[in-house]
């Protein structure tokens, strides 16, 4: 079965527990983490996770809601987007 790849972007102030909380949520959704990167960009701490949702029995809508809840708890912005949009915008 083909992978269903999405990027999670976490933006805000670096703090403990970010990866733990998100990883725990992803585990509960049966979503596999393929890669993690992070970087300080100006005033922002930015972490990106490439995840594969192909085995997840639950809809993306619920995962998005779960990530938004974590974002509110940690005071960070969390976005999740299918990788196609990055392919279109950044690759010709």
């Amino acid at each position: 079965m083909e992978k269903e790849l999405l990027f999670i972007t976490v933006i805000g102030e670096d703090r403990k527990g970010i990866v733990a909380k998100i990883s725990d949520l992803l585990y509960r959704f049966d979503v596999n983490i393929e890669d993690i990167s992070q970087k300080i960009m100006g005033a922002y701490f930015v972490m990106t996770m490439l995840v594969d949702m192909k085995d997840s029995p639950r809809p993306l809508e619920e995962l998005r809601a779960g990530l938004e809840k974590i974002g509110t708890e940690l005071g960070m912005q969390i976005q999740i987007q299918h990788e196609n949009i990055f392919k279109m915008m950044h690759r010709i």
Partner: peptide, 12 residues
């Protein structure tokens, strides 16, 4: 990863 943090951050 196929995209850099900069690229993903730019779109987001």
């Amino acid at each position: 990863m196929s995209f850099t943090v900069d690229e993903v951050f730019e779109t987001a």
